[in-house]
Design a protein around this nucleic acid. Structure first.
Lengths: 243, 243
DNA sequence: ATATTAGATGACGTTACGTAACCTGCAAGC
DNA sequence: GCTTGCAGGTTACGTAACGTCATCTAATAT
């Protein structure tokens, strides 16, 4: 049976020796064997445990909780929750990116930017209200989401739409034509989002846009005004007619 | 001229009152006006400054550096570097997700998973070697990258490829046929990556795959063995012949 | 024989605040 | 007039997850 010293584990797993000693100290990961001189030796099982710890830590749950959970969770459970977590961050990131792009565009267009605009856009991407525990209860839901991705409760699409709609409203207000560069960009992003959401299922997509036209009380979706819809259609018509 | 108290700013910008006092304390953001009683009052300019701070903080650069930089950077510069940062994180996140998915798949296939596999896949997505400064020097490069995305130095595609190649090698070693589900999945992901990279330019794509066949010394790319290439081609043939 | 490693321990430092204890000025209600 | 509550203030200590010395020991390399 092989055993590794702190230094070896440190290099292999890319954690500091100090960290390993710390984990020993707080009884999170005690090496399964100790020398007469107090040297730590880690077994293969210990390494697996460490791996678990690293993953759980990346869910940003505190070490104290990890200690309590570690033995009660299977590798698969951990990985799935990790996956949930990553997906969540992905969606938020994408919203952030889209907003940041909008801001940069606005600066280019306006030179100076109005205060409300900035604060509105930035505020959305802030607070990460979810706690780590949220990534666990889901269970089988993941696999469902994997086969029918990004529809319904997965909120990144929604955020994306809302962000785009804001931009469109802003364009309308500032009388920027759908034929302009900004209009072109909006169309492209809209198409991309639709593609991601419906994965090429054009029928489903059309149906979705039909639903969008209904008042929001009936659908529970973010309402879209007639003006915006018209604008969107003109944007897209402009692009698809292009080539 | 309007002025806001700590409490108002706190609510509006979603930072704690303590944070505002702290920023005052360390001379990062001193309100432009103070009461006889020591009450802080923030001007609109102060709020803009706070916004800058929040963005810079999200680049995870320490407050001390922010203090030194704050007045020397325009809003646009900050936003662009922020954008760079977000893009970087996005690419890493996507690699992480892909790796995590692979791991989950492996558990499903093998029930137990081999140690080396796990560690290999996880290690890639770790250390974020980049420092915040890296997001600044770039300047005009961003816009170039925006028009020709994901080619060359942008390393998320590379990571994706490498991760996929690892999976393929693993499949070959375990004698999993390209016609299997796993093979199908690999083909799908390959196609998706290619689409993202080349944005539908099939000619460029084919050329790229030709280049891939050359030995790596000449191209500087990650080398692909003949076996793998053949496997890939069989996977893809299998999918495109499908429907 | 000596120098260099690779390990160990103990103690203090760090960041960006949270939190508790306690004080102040002012408007509203009794 | 008095209390009460609230929104503001200060001072001071606490926190997480280690990083960073300083100092010590055992084993290996030259």
């Amino acid at each position: 049976m092989k055993r590794w010293t702190t230094g070896q584990v440190s290099k292999q797993r890319n954690v500091s020796v100090r960290t390993l000693r710390y984990y020993d100290q707080i009884n999170l990961l005690t090496p399964s064997f100790k020398d007469d001189n107090g040297r730590r030796y880690y077994s293969e099982e210990d390494l697996f445990k460490l791996e678990k710890i690293i993953i759980l830590k990346s869910l940003s749950l505190p070490l104290e909780n990890i200690r309590d959970l570690l033995d009660r969770l299977s590798y698969k459970q951990i990985l799935i929750s990790h996956h949930n977590y990553l997906q969540d961050r992905l969606s938020k990131l994408q919203t952030s990116i889209s907003n940041t792009k909008s801001l940069i565009n606005m600066i280019d267009l306006e030179e100076s930017l109005s205060w409300e605009r900035v604060s509105q856009l930035i505020q959305i991407s802030q607070n990460s209200s979810k706690k780590w525990i949220d990534y666990f209860e889901v269970d089988e839901k993941v696999f469902l989401q994997e086969s029918i991705p990004n529809l319904g409760n997965n909120d990144w699409t929604t955020h994306q739409y809302i962000s785009l709609l804001r931009r469109i409203e802003w364009c309308i207000k500032h009388d920027i034509k759908p034929e302009s560069d900004e209009g072109h960009q909006i169309a492209c992003e809209l198409i991309e989002i639709s593609n991601v959401t419906f994965q090429g299922d054009t029928k489903l997509m059309e149906k979705f846009w039909e639903v969008r036209k209904l008042p929001s009380e009936e659908t529970g979706l973010y309402p879209i005004s007639e003006v915006v819809l018209e604008y969107v259609e003109r944007c897209i018509a402009n692009v698809t007619g292009d080539e």
